[in-house]
Nucleic acid binder design. Structure first.
Lengths: 266, 266
DNA sequence: GTGAAGTGGTTCATTATTCGAACCATCGGT
DNA sequence: ACCGATGGTTCGAATAATGAACCACTTCAC
C-alpha cells in the first residue's frame, strides 16, 4: 500500500463517537510505527486535513475538508440535494433514514436524518463505511449493479458483522434475486445487533446504481407491518432522490418504485 | 515535500470553475511527471477522495470528502453554525458575504452566501485559499492574531495579487494598527481587481482568532457610505458567529463589535 | 484510408524517500 | 525522585516513489 493511502486511512478513524484522536491512539488503531504515523499526521495537518488542539495535542478533522466539500457541493451537489428528500422521509416514517453513495466496494454515507421521535434510537455513524453484503443499502446496490461488479463483491471475503450477517455467496445471490424482483432490500440485525432496515437503490444518469437510501428501525420494534407501512415513503424517496440527482430509473425496473404518485411538484 | 502533500495538493486544483480535471491538465497544473501524478490520482481515487467519470476519464472530488465533512460537522459544527449568520448578513446588506477559517498562514473558505440581488456580481470561489495580507478577512485575522504569528506572516513573501495589493510589511503594520483600533478591516481591489471588501475577526473559546467574516462588493459600486451602511450588520454578524462557535470576544476589544444590540435571542 | 497530435495509462531501472527501533522531552501522580 | 504515561525526533537501513520511454486509443486533417 502506498504512503498516500496509509495517511488517508488515518482520517477514517474519526467518527461521531471519536471526534478527536491523539498520536498514541492513532498508533494503536493503525498498528503502524509511531514515527510513521506522526509524520503522516504532520503532513495531513500542514495541508489542513487535520487541525490540532494546542493544549491536548489531539487531532481532529481540519478545515480543508470543509472547503473541498463546499467545492464539490457547488459543482456536483449530492448532500444538499439528498437532504430534503431524506429529511422528508424521516419525518414521514418517524425513523432514521440515511443515504449513501457507492465508493469502490463500500458505501460512503452522504446524509442521514433522525427524527428523534422514539425512545429507542438507532445509532448511525456517518464516519463509518458500510459493507455491501451486510446492509440493506448494500444489497439494494448489489442487486442492481452490473453482474461483474456483483460477482467481484461476492467473491471477496464476506465478513460476519453480527451473528445474523449472511456470509454465504450463494445465499446472498438468492436474496439479491428477490431484491431485484421487489425493488426493496430488507435485513434484520445483519449489521447492527439491534437494528433492522430496508433500503432501495438510487440511480445515475445512465440508469446505473450510484447509491441507496435506507430506513433503519430498532429491531425490537420491527414488524413486517411496520416495514410495509414505510414502503410508500421509501419508494417515493427513491424516485425523488434519483430525479433530484439528475439520474434515471432503469426502464425495465422503474415500475418497482414509481407507483401511483399524486403528481410531482417541480 | 512529502508524497502525501504532493497528492493532497492535487485536490486544491479543483474549484467552482474547474470542477473536473483530467490527467493531462493535472500534469500541466502541477508541473510534475505524468506517471507520478497518475499514481497519486489512482491512490486518491481508491480512497474515495476522487471519483472518475467513466467516459471522459476526468476526475472530480469524491464521496469521502462528503463523509468526512459530515463527521466534522457532527462533532464540531462550523459550516452549519455559520450558515444562518452569514445568510442573514447577506440578505441584510444585499451583497456577498463569506466566512473563512484560519488554516496555517492562509484562510480556508467555510461558507458564503450571495443574495443575487445586483446585476454586477462578485465572484467568490470556495475552492481558493485566501492570503492573509491581501484580503480584508486576512487583515482582520492578522490584526488580532498573536504578535509572533503576525510577524511570521509579514516576514514571509507578500506577493502582489493585484496592482493595489499592499506588499510592504511596514505599510501593512500601519494598516493593522488601524484595524486593531476600529475592529474592521477594509481593502479596495487588493485581491480582486473588481472587488472591495470589509471584514472582521471571529474568535474561539479562549478569545483567539479562528477566522473572519467579510462583505465583498463590486469596486465600482463601493463608496464609504455604502461600506458604513453595512457596518452594523457586520458587527452583529461577528458577535453572533463568535458566540455560535462557542467563542468569546477578547474582553479588551469586545466593544468594537458588541454595540447596542437589541437583546439577543437564545 | 494514413498519419500526426491529442488523450489516458503503464513499465522498470535508478534513486530518493519513507520507515522504525531507539531516543529525548514533558507532564501528572506517588 | 521516580515511574509511566503522553507527544515528538533521529538516523542508518530498506523500501517505495520517481520519470523517461513506451503503449493503446481517439480525433482530426488530408
Amino acid at each position: 500500500m502506498g504512503t498516500i493511502s496509509k495517511a488517508l486511512e488515518l482520517l477514517n478513524y474519526f467518527s461521531r463517537t471519536r471526534p478527536a484522536i491523539g498520536l498514541g491512539e492513532f498508533v494503536r488503531l493503525s498498528g503502524r510505527d509511531k514515527a510513521t504515523v506522526h509524520r503522516h499526521l504532520v503532513e495531513l495537518h500542514e495541508n489542513g486535513f487535520l487541525e490540532q488542539n494546542p493544549e491536548s495535542r489531539a487531532y481532529r478533522l481540519g478545515p480543508a475538508i470543509l472547503r473541498l466539500s463546499g467545492v464539490r457541493e457547488a459543482t456536483y451537489p449530492v448532500r444538499s440535494v439528498l437532504r430534503p428528500v431524506v429529511t422528508r422521509m424521516a419525518e414521514a416514517v418517524g425513523e432514521l433514514v440515511h443515504a449513501s453513495v457507492l465508493q469502490g466496494e463500500l458505501l460512503s454515507p452522504a446524509f442521514h436524518s433522525d427524527p428523534l421521535g422514539h425512545g429507542t434510537q438507532v445509532h448511525f455513524d456517518e464516519g463509518e463505511m458500510l459493507p455491501l453484503h451486510a446492509t440493506s443499502s448494500g444489497l439494494a446496490v448489489l442487486a442492481f449493479a452490473p453482474d461483474g461488479f456483483r460477482e467481484a463483491v461476492l467473491r471477496a471475503p464476506l465478513p460476519a458483522i453480527t451473528a445474523q450477517t449472511v456470509t454465504d455467496a450463494g445465499a446472498l445471490r438468492g436474496l439479491l434475486d428477490e431484491v431485484r424482483h421487489t425493488g426493496i432490500a430488507r435485513l434484520d440485525r445483519a449489521f447492527d445487533q439491534e437494528v433492522a432496515s430496508q433500503g432501495a437503490p438510487v440511480f445515475g444518469p445512465a440508469g446505473e446504481v450510484v447509491g441507496a437510501i435506507s430506513i433503519a428501525i430498532p429491531a425490537v420494534r420491527s414488524t413486517t407491518e411496520k416495514m410495509d407501512a414505510a414502503l410508500p415513503a421509501l419508494r417515493q424517496g427513491i424516485v425523488e432522490a434519483t430525479r433530484a440527482l439528475g439520474g434515471n430509473l432503469p426502464k425495465e425496473h422503474a415500475g418497482k418504485w414509481e407507483v401511483s404518485q399524486p403528481e410531482t411538484v417541480d
